[in-house]
Design a protein around this nucleic acid. Structure first.
Length: 428
RNA sequence: GGAGAGAUGGCAGAGUGGUCGAAUGCACCGGUCUUGAAAACCGGCACGGGUUUGUAGCCCGUCUAGGGUUCAAAUCCCUAUCUCUCCGCCA
């Protein structure tokens, strides 16, 4: 959520900055609601003030043993007038809040302007794509031939866009998650967390999945009418970031760096034609998530280091990649600046997204009321939050199958993963 | 699943329906003392919002959340959520 002051005092300027990311702010509508709000709120508070004054004088008169009948007469229909104003104001505030919660974050000034992914800017490249002296296969053919990827049974058990993994491929998937977690906890200073995969509505509002993107999630159907519906997490960013919701953190405890390996669930609504084959776009996949809660002055540096942490995994796995900075038009809802890391996939002869690292600044913190006590004035101030994939395990598996394939269809196990595979050097 | 108890400021913890936004302690901030620190002593210290040029003043709201009773609710009533204790069941 943006600072409400932006909508009150800097509406035009805010609209201009949002236009850069392709979002049109309804300035006329908001300013007319704001005007009404201001008037109504003042009126309501004035009524409350006079009611409070009368009630207080009743108390004082009673304490002195005076007759309160004349004061009671003053009360009149104050109560019903007040109730009406209050209801009207509450409805207006609800409307304004809904609008505020649906406005995306402002892009950072350093973010390149652009309309879509074609305007993203490559910032660096690492590694050289290997040249193969045989015809490369894609990860589906490789995985199915090794009896490691079983799409048919996944469809039978659940439906499309789910996977059953077996044997050494299943083990490789597990090894990848373990390896990533170990690297982030032992070398990058993150604390491992085990978190719920089902979260409540407040958490989803906090990180920005709600109110706008409910259709991207899987929701549980509550057993009773009154019970609240829980939703499956689309990323561990949700539970990890919400750890600091409604808390005031000691400044000395910043930065907080958390990581978790979880399954992630996405309904992929509206992407029916895309990446239908293979593991690239699944309803369920494993991901190691990195989250940092930092002092506002440090968030841009933190974004650089968090992105580097994700890149370090690819370097350790010796997978070629490139890093791009997303343009204003391609960024996610809550992000002010995002780096995407794209891994080389030989079968597609292109780089594909494997990690997305974002600085959300105070956008989530304001929704979550996540604050720290500022040493400077001893007052609570909003923290900045960052998150990134470190990495998406399923897509890393794809990258390994394709980049480490041999002419005979076997897969060489990357050196750093061998300890996690019982010393196995080749899957075949 | 059954029975009971509870939820108050950063934390702990008082609070007869009427100057209660809330005692007290800890933590924190400033000061005195000290070569420095500690201790002791003095002072300050909840959060959000409105109005405003204003981090000044004034006003409003907030004692888990949402309803209700009342001129007036932390305090009374209802509902939800969560926590704790006991019983049952269970990986």
């Amino acid at each position: 959520m943006l600072d409400p002051k932006f909508l009150r005092n800097e509406l035009e300027d805010t609209a201009k900055r949002l236009a850069a990311r392709g979002y049109t702010l309804d300035v006329a509508h908001i300013s007319s609601l704001e005007e009404k709000r201001k008037k109504l709120q003042v009126e309501t508070e004035e009524l409350q003030a006079s009611r409070n004054a009368i009630s207080k004088s009743i108390g004082q008169a009673k304490a002195k043993g005076e007759d309160i009948a004349p004061i009671m007469a003053q009360v009149g229909d104050l109560g019903s007038k007040l109730d009406a104003k209050k209801a009207e104001l509450a409805e207006l505030l609800q409307q304004l809040n809904m609008i505020a919660m649906s406005i995306p974050n402002l892009p950072d000034d350093a973010v390149p302007a652009g309309a879509d992914e074609n305007d993203n800017v490559e910032v660096r490249r690492w590694g050289t794509p290997k040249s193969f002296d045989f015809e490369v296969k894609d990860h589906l053919d490789l995985g199915e031939a090794l009896d490691g990827l079983d799409f048919k049974n996944a469809v039978k058990i659940t439906g499309s866009r789910f996977i059953v993994m077996k044997g050494q491929i299943a083990r490789l998937n597990r090894a990848l998650g373990q390896f990533m977690l170990d690297m982030h906890t032992t070398q990058h200073g993150y604390t491992e967390a085990y978190v719920p995969l089902l979260v409540n509505e407040d958490s989803l509002l906090g990180t920005g999945q709600l109110p706008k993107f409910g259709e991207d999630l899987f929701h549980t159907k509550p057993a009773t009418e009154e019970a609240q519906s829980l939703s499956l997490i689309p990323t561990a960013e949700v539970p990890l970031t919400n750890l600091v919701r409604d808390t005031i953190i000691d400044e000395a405890d910043l930065p907080i760096k958390m990581t978790a390996l979880t399954a992630c669930f996405r309904s992929e609504a509206g992407s029916y034609g895309r990446d239908t084959r293979g593991l690239i776009r699944q309803h369920q996949f494993d991901k190691v998530e990195l989250v940092q809660i930092v002092h506002p002055e440090q968030s841009m540096e933190a974004l650089e280091s968090l992105t580097q942490h994700a890149e370090n995994i690819l370097q350790a796995l010796e997978l070629p990649y490139r890093t791009v900075v997303l343009c204003t038009g391609d960024m996610g809802f809550g992000a002010s600046k995002t780096f995407d890391i794209e891994v080389w996939l030989p079968a597609q002869n292109t780089y594909r997204e494997i990690s997305s690292c974002s600085n959300m600044k105070d956008f989530q913190a304001r929704r979550m009321q996540a604050r720290f006590r500022n040493k400077a004035d001893n007052k609570p101030a909003l923290v900045h939050t960052l998150n990134g994939s470190g990495l998406a395990v399923g897509r890393t598996l794809v990258a390994i199958l394709e980049n480490y394939q041999n002419a005979d269809g076997t897969i060489t196990v990357p050196t750093v993963l061998r300890p996690y595979m019982g010393g196995l050097e080749v899957i075949g």
